[in-house]
Design a protein around this nucleic acid. Structure first.
Lengths: 194, 194
DNA sequence: GGAGTCATGTAACACGTTACATGATTTA
DNA sequence: TAAATCATGTAACGTGTTACATGACTCC
Protein backbone atom coordinates (compact mmCIF):
# COMPACT_ATOMS: atom_id res chain seq x y z
CA UNK A 1 0.00 0.00 0.00
CA UNK A 2 2.92 2.33 0.67
CA UNK A 3 4.07 2.88 -2.90
CA UNK A 4 0.82 4.60 -3.84
CA UNK A 5 1.25 7.05 -0.99
CA UNK A 6 4.92 7.59 -1.72
CA UNK A 7 4.17 8.45 -5.34
CA UNK A 8 1.47 10.83 -4.14
CA UNK A 9 4.04 12.45 -1.87
CA UNK A 10 6.60 12.73 -4.66
CA UNK A 11 3.99 14.41 -6.88
CA UNK A 12 4.22 17.62 -4.86
CA UNK A 13 5.30 18.96 -8.24
CA UNK A 14 4.04 17.42 -11.52
CA UNK A 15 6.21 14.61 -12.89
CA UNK A 16 6.19 11.63 -15.21
CA UNK A 17 6.77 8.02 -14.24
CA UNK A 18 10.24 8.26 -15.72
CA UNK A 19 11.00 11.33 -13.58
CA UNK A 20 9.85 9.55 -10.44
CA UNK A 21 12.09 6.57 -11.14
CA UNK A 22 15.04 8.97 -11.40
CA UNK A 23 14.12 10.55 -8.09
CA UNK A 24 14.17 7.12 -6.44
CA UNK A 25 17.62 6.45 -7.84
CA UNK A 26 19.18 9.74 -6.92
CA UNK A 27 17.85 10.48 -3.47
CA UNK A 28 15.28 8.19 -1.87
CA UNK A 29 17.25 5.14 -2.96
CA UNK A 30 18.62 4.59 0.52
CA UNK A 31 15.34 3.56 2.04
CA UNK A 32 13.01 2.86 -0.86
CA UNK A 33 13.06 1.89 -4.51
CA UNK A 34 10.65 0.90 -7.23
CA UNK A 35 11.05 -0.31 -10.78
CA UNK A 36 9.32 1.30 -13.75
CA UNK A 37 7.34 -1.92 -14.18
CA UNK A 38 5.76 -1.18 -10.81
CA UNK A 39 5.57 2.61 -11.11
CA UNK A 40 3.61 2.79 -14.36
CA UNK A 41 0.73 0.47 -13.34
CA UNK A 42 0.53 2.20 -9.95
CA UNK A 43 0.24 5.62 -11.57
CA UNK A 44 -2.51 4.30 -13.84
CA UNK A 45 -4.33 2.94 -10.81
CA UNK A 46 -4.01 6.25 -8.99
CA UNK A 47 -5.38 8.09 -12.00
CA UNK A 48 -8.32 5.72 -12.31
CA UNK A 49 -9.02 6.31 -8.64
CA UNK A 50 -9.09 10.06 -9.17
CA UNK A 51 -6.01 10.81 -7.05
CA UNK A 52 -3.89 12.21 -9.86
CA UNK A 53 -4.40 13.37 -13.44
CA UNK A 54 -2.14 12.96 -16.45
CA UNK A 55 -1.50 15.19 -19.43
CA UNK A 56 0.62 14.38 -22.47
CA UNK A 57 3.29 17.03 -22.82
CA UNK A 58 6.05 17.35 -25.43
CA UNK A 59 9.59 16.82 -24.20
CA UNK A 60 12.66 18.92 -24.96
CA UNK A 61 14.81 15.88 -25.71
CA UNK A 62 12.67 12.86 -26.41
CA UNK A 63 9.19 11.49 -27.07
CA UNK A 64 6.07 12.88 -25.44
CA UNK A 65 5.82 12.46 -21.68
CA UNK A 66 2.80 11.61 -19.56
CA UNK A 67 3.03 14.18 -16.81
CA UNK A 68 0.92 13.62 -13.71
CA UNK A 69 -0.26 16.22 -11.24
CA UNK A 70 -1.77 15.54 -7.85
CA UNK A 71 -5.46 16.25 -7.31
CA UNK A 72 -7.13 17.30 -4.07
CA UNK A 73 -8.21 13.71 -3.39
CA UNK A 74 -4.56 12.68 -3.74
CA UNK A 75 -3.40 15.22 -1.21
CA UNK A 76 -6.11 14.14 1.22
CA UNK A 77 -5.05 10.51 0.89
CA UNK A 78 -1.44 11.49 1.52
CA UNK A 79 -2.32 13.43 4.66
CA UNK A 80 -4.45 10.56 5.91
CA UNK A 81 -1.47 8.22 5.51
CA UNK A 82 0.78 10.58 7.45
CA UNK A 83 -1.76 11.17 10.19
CA UNK A 84 -2.16 7.48 10.94
CA UNK A 85 1.32 7.65 12.48
CA UNK A 86 4.66 6.04 11.68
CA UNK A 87 4.48 2.72 9.85
CA UNK A 88 7.25 0.44 11.12
CA UNK A 89 8.00 -2.38 8.68
CA UNK A 90 8.79 -5.82 10.02
CA UNK A 91 12.47 -6.10 9.30
CA UNK A 92 13.83 -8.96 7.23
CA UNK A 93 17.59 -8.84 7.39
CA UNK A 94 19.12 -11.65 5.40
CA UNK A 95 22.67 -11.26 6.67
CA UNK A 96 21.45 -11.39 10.29
CA UNK A 97 19.63 -14.64 9.55
CA UNK A 98 22.79 -15.96 7.94
CA UNK A 99 24.73 -15.04 11.09
CA UNK A 100 22.51 -17.38 13.12
CA UNK A 101 23.72 -20.36 11.16
CA UNK A 102 27.27 -19.23 10.49
CA UNK A 103 28.68 -21.79 12.89
CA UNK A 104 28.42 -24.20 9.96
CA UNK A 105 31.51 -22.45 8.57
CA UNK A 106 35.05 -22.26 9.92
CA UNK A 107 36.02 -19.34 12.14
CA UNK A 108 38.15 -18.00 9.31
CA UNK A 109 35.21 -18.01 6.95
CA UNK A 110 33.04 -16.39 9.62
CA UNK A 111 35.51 -13.53 9.89
CA UNK A 112 35.61 -13.16 6.11
CA UNK A 113 31.82 -12.96 6.14
CA UNK A 114 31.87 -10.12 8.68
CA UNK A 115 34.71 -8.32 6.95
CA UNK A 116 32.91 -8.43 3.63
CA UNK A 117 29.84 -6.93 5.30
CA UNK A 118 32.00 -4.26 6.92
CA UNK A 119 33.60 -3.30 3.61
CA UNK A 120 30.24 -3.10 1.83
CA UNK A 121 28.80 -1.01 4.64
CA UNK A 122 31.83 1.29 4.63
CA UNK A 123 31.33 1.79 0.91
CA UNK A 124 27.64 2.60 1.31
CA UNK A 125 28.44 4.98 4.14
CA UNK A 126 31.04 6.86 2.11
CA UNK A 127 28.58 7.23 -0.76
CA UNK A 128 25.85 8.54 1.50
CA UNK A 129 28.23 10.90 3.29
CA UNK A 130 29.27 12.29 -0.07
CA UNK A 131 25.64 12.79 -1.00
CA UNK A 132 24.76 14.31 2.36
CA UNK A 133 27.55 16.89 2.03
CA UNK A 134 25.17 18.89 -0.15
CA UNK A 135 22.70 19.05 2.71
CA UNK A 136 24.14 20.66 5.83
CA UNK A 137 21.92 20.68 8.88
CA UNK A 138 20.42 24.14 9.33
CA UNK A 139 22.09 25.42 12.47
CA UNK A 140 25.38 23.66 11.76
CA UNK A 141 26.42 26.47 9.47
CA UNK A 142 24.63 29.48 10.82
CA UNK A 143 23.15 31.86 8.26
CA UNK A 144 24.47 29.73 5.40
CA UNK A 145 21.03 28.77 4.14
CA UNK A 146 18.14 31.04 3.32
CA UNK A 147 14.62 29.91 2.61
CA UNK A 148 11.82 31.79 0.96
CA UNK A 149 9.21 30.46 3.37
CA UNK A 150 9.14 28.64 6.74
CA UNK A 151 7.47 25.73 4.91
CA UNK A 152 10.49 25.39 2.64
CA UNK A 153 12.82 25.42 5.59
CA UNK A 154 10.76 22.78 7.37
CA UNK A 155 10.67 20.60 4.27
CA UNK A 156 14.44 20.89 3.94
CA UNK A 157 14.97 19.99 7.60
CA UNK A 158 12.93 16.83 7.13
CA UNK A 159 14.92 15.83 4.05
CA UNK A 160 18.15 16.25 5.96
CA UNK A 161 16.84 14.20 8.87
CA UNK A 162 15.97 11.33 6.57
CA UNK A 163 19.51 11.35 5.21
CA UNK A 164 20.87 11.34 8.74
CA UNK A 165 18.68 8.35 9.51
CA UNK A 166 20.55 6.46 6.84
CA UNK A 167 23.90 7.64 8.15
CA UNK A 168 23.10 6.56 11.71
CA UNK A 169 21.92 3.15 10.53
CA UNK A 170 25.07 2.52 8.56
CA UNK A 171 27.30 3.69 11.39
CA UNK A 172 25.50 1.40 13.83
CA UNK A 173 25.97 -1.49 11.41
CA UNK A 174 29.69 -0.73 11.09
CA UNK A 175 30.07 -0.65 14.84
CA UNK A 176 28.34 -4.01 15.06
CA UNK A 177 30.64 -5.50 12.40
CA UNK A 178 33.68 -4.50 14.41
CA UNK A 179 32.23 -5.85 17.63
CA UNK A 180 31.35 -9.11 15.89
CA UNK A 181 34.81 -9.54 14.43
CA UNK A 182 36.49 -9.16 17.83
CA UNK A 183 33.94 -11.41 19.51
CA UNK A 184 34.49 -14.18 17.01
CA UNK A 185 38.26 -13.87 17.31
CA UNK A 186 38.03 -13.99 21.10
CA UNK A 187 35.65 -16.95 21.06
CA UNK A 188 38.19 -18.88 19.05
CA UNK A 189 39.90 -19.18 22.38
CA UNK A 190 43.34 -19.94 21.10
CA UNK A 191 46.27 -19.25 23.40
CA UNK A 192 47.84 -15.90 22.51
CA UNK A 193 51.42 -17.12 22.50
CA UNK A 194 51.44 -19.54 19.62
CA UNK B 1 14.87 -17.45 -1.77
CA UNK B 2 16.02 -16.82 1.77
CA UNK B 3 13.23 -18.59 3.63
CA UNK B 4 14.25 -21.96 2.22
CA UNK B 5 17.77 -21.48 3.49
CA UNK B 6 16.60 -20.16 6.84
CA UNK B 7 14.40 -23.22 7.37
CA UNK B 8 17.35 -25.41 6.43
CA UNK B 9 19.42 -23.59 9.02
CA UNK B 10 16.74 -23.97 11.68
CA UNK B 11 16.56 -27.70 10.98
CA UNK B 12 19.90 -28.26 12.71
CA UNK B 13 17.71 -30.40 14.92
CA UNK B 14 14.57 -32.17 13.60
CA UNK B 15 11.38 -30.12 13.90
CA UNK B 16 7.87 -29.76 12.52
CA UNK B 17 6.48 -26.74 10.69
CA UNK B 18 4.60 -25.82 13.83
CA UNK B 19 7.82 -25.94 15.86
CA UNK B 20 9.60 -23.69 13.39
CA UNK B 21 6.82 -21.10 13.52
CA UNK B 22 7.25 -21.01 17.30
CA UNK B 23 10.96 -20.50 16.94
CA UNK B 24 10.35 -17.49 14.70
CA UNK B 25 8.02 -16.00 17.27
CA UNK B 26 10.21 -16.51 20.28
CA UNK B 27 13.68 -15.68 19.07
CA UNK B 28 14.31 -14.83 15.44
CA UNK B 29 11.25 -12.58 15.39
CA UNK B 30 13.33 -9.42 15.55
CA UNK B 31 14.76 -9.76 12.09
CA UNK B 32 12.65 -12.36 10.32
CA UNK B 33 9.23 -13.90 10.43
CA UNK B 34 7.11 -16.30 8.39
CA UNK B 35 3.52 -17.46 8.62
CA UNK B 36 2.50 -21.11 8.69
CA UNK B 37 0.84 -20.57 5.32
CA UNK B 38 4.30 -19.91 3.92
CA UNK B 39 6.22 -22.40 6.04
CA UNK B 40 4.24 -25.52 5.14
CA UNK B 41 4.46 -25.19 1.34
CA UNK B 42 8.15 -24.31 1.61
CA UNK B 43 8.86 -27.43 3.67
CA UNK B 44 7.00 -29.54 1.10
CA UNK B 45 9.07 -27.98 -1.66
CA UNK B 46 12.29 -28.66 0.25
CA UNK B 47 11.26 -32.28 0.75
CA UNK B 48 10.41 -32.72 -2.93
CA UNK B 49 13.83 -31.29 -3.75
CA UNK B 50 15.52 -33.83 -1.50
CA UNK B 51 16.87 -31.30 1.00
CA UNK B 52 14.89 -32.60 3.98
CA UNK B 53 12.83 -35.66 4.87
CA UNK B 54 9.66 -35.93 6.92
CA UNK B 55 8.38 -38.61 9.26
CA UNK B 56 5.00 -38.74 10.98
CA UNK B 57 5.55 -38.99 14.71
CA UNK B 58 3.00 -39.16 17.53
CA UNK B 59 2.84 -36.14 19.81
CA UNK B 60 2.67 -36.06 23.60
CA UNK B 61 -0.10 -33.48 23.65
CA UNK B 62 -1.89 -33.36 20.31
CA UNK B 63 -2.32 -34.90 16.87
CA UNK B 64 0.48 -36.52 14.92
CA UNK B 65 3.31 -34.22 13.84
CA UNK B 66 5.23 -34.17 10.58
CA UNK B 67 8.81 -33.94 11.80
CA UNK B 68 11.47 -32.98 9.28
CA UNK B 69 15.16 -33.72 9.44
CA UNK B 70 17.84 -32.16 7.27
CA UNK B 71 19.56 -34.33 4.68
CA UNK B 72 23.12 -33.97 3.41
CA UNK B 73 21.91 -32.10 0.33
CA UNK B 74 20.17 -29.66 2.67
CA UNK B 75 23.31 -28.99 4.64
CA UNK B 76 25.28 -28.45 1.46
CA UNK B 77 22.73 -25.94 0.22
CA UNK B 78 22.89 -24.10 3.55
CA UNK B 79 26.67 -23.89 3.45
CA UNK B 80 26.58 -22.68 -0.14
CA UNK B 81 24.21 -19.87 0.91
CA UNK B 82 26.52 -18.85 3.74
CA UNK B 83 29.64 -19.00 1.60
CA UNK B 84 28.25 -16.65 -1.02
CA UNK B 85 28.71 -13.89 1.57
CA UNK B 86 26.38 -11.53 3.40
CA UNK B 87 23.10 -10.77 1.63
CA UNK B 88 22.14 -7.15 2.26
CA UNK B 89 18.44 -6.52 1.61
CA UNK B 90 17.39 -3.29 -0.02
CA UNK B 91 15.76 -1.48 2.85
CA UNK B 92 12.19 -0.30 2.61
CA UNK B 93 11.46 1.87 5.62
CA UNK B 94 7.94 3.20 5.53
CA UNK B 95 8.31 5.72 8.34
CA UNK B 96 11.39 7.23 6.68
CA UNK B 97 9.42 7.67 3.47
CA UNK B 98 6.63 9.27 5.48
CA UNK B 99 9.16 11.66 7.00
CA UNK B 100 10.01 12.96 3.52
CA UNK B 101 6.49 14.24 3.06
CA UNK B 102 5.74 15.18 6.64
CA UNK B 103 5.85 18.89 5.84
CA UNK B 104 2.24 18.42 4.72
CA UNK B 105 1.38 18.31 8.44
CA UNK B 106 1.70 20.98 11.11
CA UNK B 107 4.86 21.13 13.20
CA UNK B 108 2.84 19.90 16.17
CA UNK B 109 1.68 16.85 14.24
CA UNK B 110 5.23 16.26 13.02
CA UNK B 111 6.44 16.14 16.60
CA UNK B 112 3.64 13.77 17.56
CA UNK B 113 4.70 11.53 14.68
CA UNK B 114 8.28 11.39 15.94
CA UNK B 115 7.26 10.93 19.56
CA UNK B 116 5.00 8.03 18.64
CA UNK B 117 7.91 6.41 16.82
CA UNK B 118 10.15 7.03 19.80
CA UNK B 119 7.68 5.42 22.21
CA UNK B 120 7.21 2.38 19.97
CA UNK B 121 10.96 2.00 19.58
CA UNK B 122 11.50 2.36 23.30
CA UNK B 123 8.96 -0.40 23.88
CA UNK B 124 10.64 -2.71 21.36
CA UNK B 125 14.02 -1.99 22.89
CA UNK B 126 12.84 -2.81 26.41
CA UNK B 127 11.37 -6.08 25.17
CA UNK B 128 14.56 -7.07 23.40
CA UNK B 129 16.71 -6.05 26.36
CA UNK B 130 14.59 -8.25 28.58
CA UNK B 131 15.03 -11.12 26.15
CA UNK B 132 18.75 -10.55 25.78
CA UNK B 133 19.25 -10.68 29.55
CA UNK B 134 19.22 -14.48 29.20
CA UNK B 135 22.17 -14.28 26.85
CA UNK B 136 25.21 -12.58 28.40
CA UNK B 137 28.17 -12.04 26.14
CA UNK B 138 30.83 -14.64 26.89
CA UNK B 139 33.62 -12.60 28.40
CA UNK B 140 31.29 -10.14 30.11
CA UNK B 141 30.83 -12.55 32.97
CA UNK B 142 34.04 -14.54 33.08
CA UNK B 143 33.72 -18.22 33.76
CA UNK B 144 29.92 -17.96 34.09
CA UNK B 145 29.21 -20.06 31.00
CA UNK B 146 30.52 -23.49 30.18
CA UNK B 147 30.19 -25.20 26.87
CA UNK B 148 30.63 -28.84 26.05
CA UNK B 149 32.43 -28.10 22.78
CA UNK B 150 34.08 -25.12 21.08
CA UNK B 151 31.41 -25.43 18.37
CA UNK B 152 28.69 -24.87 20.95
CA UNK B 153 30.48 -21.84 22.30
CA UNK B 154 30.88 -20.41 18.81
CA UNK B 155 27.23 -21.02 18.01
CA UNK B 156 26.22 -19.25 21.21
CA UNK B 157 28.47 -16.29 20.46
CA UNK B 158 26.83 -15.85 17.06
CA UNK B 159 23.34 -15.97 18.60
CA UNK B 160 24.29 -13.27 21.06
CA UNK B 161 25.77 -11.11 18.33
CA UNK B 162 22.55 -11.27 16.35
CA UNK B 163 20.62 -10.08 19.39
CA UNK B 164 23.09 -7.24 19.84
CA UNK B 165 22.53 -6.30 16.22
CA UNK B 166 18.90 -5.70 17.05
CA UNK B 167 19.79 -3.74 20.17
CA UNK B 168 22.19 -1.47 18.29
CA UNK B 169 19.63 -0.83 15.55
CA UNK B 170 16.96 0.14 18.02
CA UNK B 171 19.31 2.38 19.98
CA UNK B 172 20.38 4.15 16.79
CA UNK B 173 16.73 4.67 15.88
CA UNK B 174 16.01 6.12 19.32
CA UNK B 175 18.92 8.50 19.01
CA UNK B 176 17.61 9.60 15.65
CA UNK B 177 14.12 10.20 17.03
CA UNK B 178 15.54 12.52 19.68
CA UNK B 179 17.66 14.38 17.17
CA UNK B 180 14.68 14.75 14.87
CA UNK B 181 12.45 16.09 17.61
CA UNK B 182 14.92 18.80 18.57
CA UNK B 183 15.62 19.66 14.94
CA UNK B 184 11.95 20.13 14.18
CA UNK B 185 11.46 22.23 17.28
CA UNK B 186 14.45 24.40 16.37
CA UNK B 187 13.34 24.75 12.77
CA UNK B 188 10.05 26.12 13.96
CA UNK B 189 12.11 29.22 14.57
CA UNK B 190 9.76 30.88 16.99
CA UNK B 191 11.21 33.49 19.31
CA UNK B 192 11.91 31.98 22.70
CA UNK B 193 10.30 34.73 24.71
CA UNK B 194 6.70 34.51 23.65
C1' DG C 1 21.41 4.63 -40.59
C1' DG C 2 22.87 2.73 -36.04
C1' DA C 3 23.62 3.28 -31.05
C1' DG C 4 22.02 5.26 -27.06
C1' DT C 5 18.72 7.37 -24.33
C1' DC C 6 13.95 8.80 -23.44
C1' DA C 7 9.56 7.02 -22.52
C1' DT C 8 5.61 3.83 -21.63
C1' DG C 9 3.94 -0.23 -21.07
C1' DT C 10 2.65 -5.87 -20.54
C1' DA C 11 3.53 -10.74 -18.97
C1' DA C 12 5.29 -14.17 -16.13
C1' DC C 13 6.92 -15.31 -12.05
C1' DA C 14 8.40 -15.18 -6.99
C1' DC C 15 7.37 -13.92 -2.48
C1' DG C 16 4.22 -12.81 1.46
C1' DT C 17 -0.24 -12.09 3.87
C1' DT C 18 -4.97 -12.99 5.07
C1' DA C 19 -8.68 -15.82 5.10
C1' DC C 20 -10.55 -20.14 5.03
C1' DA C 21 -10.90 -25.41 5.77
C1' DT C 22 -10.14 -29.45 8.45
C1' DG C 23 -9.55 -32.39 12.09
C1' DA C 24 -7.16 -34.38 16.49
C1' DT C 25 -6.33 -33.94 21.31
C1' DT C 26 -6.51 -31.74 25.86
C1' DT C 27 -8.60 -29.22 29.57
C1' DA C 28 -12.36 -27.14 32.03
C1' DT D 1 -19.54 -31.29 25.54
C1' DA D 2 -17.54 -26.96 24.54
C1' DA D 3 -13.48 -24.18 24.14
C1' DA D 4 -8.66 -23.97 23.52
C1' DT D 5 -4.71 -25.53 21.53
C1' DC D 6 -2.12 -28.54 18.42
C1' DA D 7 -1.33 -29.47 13.74
C1' DT D 8 -1.44 -29.25 8.58
C1' DG D 9 -2.84 -27.49 4.78
C1' DT D 10 -5.25 -24.60 0.35
C1' DA D 11 -7.00 -20.35 -2.07
C1' DA D 12 -7.14 -15.66 -3.13
C1' DC D 13 -4.98 -11.66 -3.20
C1' DG D 14 -1.38 -7.98 -3.07
C1' DT D 15 3.27 -6.61 -3.84
C1' DG D 16 7.74 -6.72 -6.13
C1' DT D 17 11.15 -8.38 -9.77
C1' DT D 18 12.75 -9.80 -14.27
C1' DA D 19 12.13 -10.16 -18.89
C1' DC D 20 10.16 -8.69 -22.90
C1' DA D 21 7.87 -5.36 -26.39
C1' DT D 22 7.45 -0.98 -28.56
C1' DG D 23 8.40 3.31 -30.41
C1' DA D 24 10.24 8.37 -30.45
C1' DC D 25 14.02 11.22 -30.60
C1' DT D 26 19.09 12.58 -30.57
C1' DC D 27 23.80 12.31 -31.62
C1' DC D 28 27.46 10.37 -34.21
Amino acid sequence: MSLQHILLGMLEKPASGYDLKREFEYSLNNFWNAELAQIYPTLNKLEQGGYIKSKMTPSANGPKRKVYRRLKKGEESLIEWLQQGPVVPKSRIDYAAQMCFLSALSTTQQLEFIQKLERDTQKRLRKLEEFSAQYPLPGDEPQSEHFATPEEKNSYTLQVLVIHHGLLRLKALLEWCRMSASCIMLSENKPLNQ
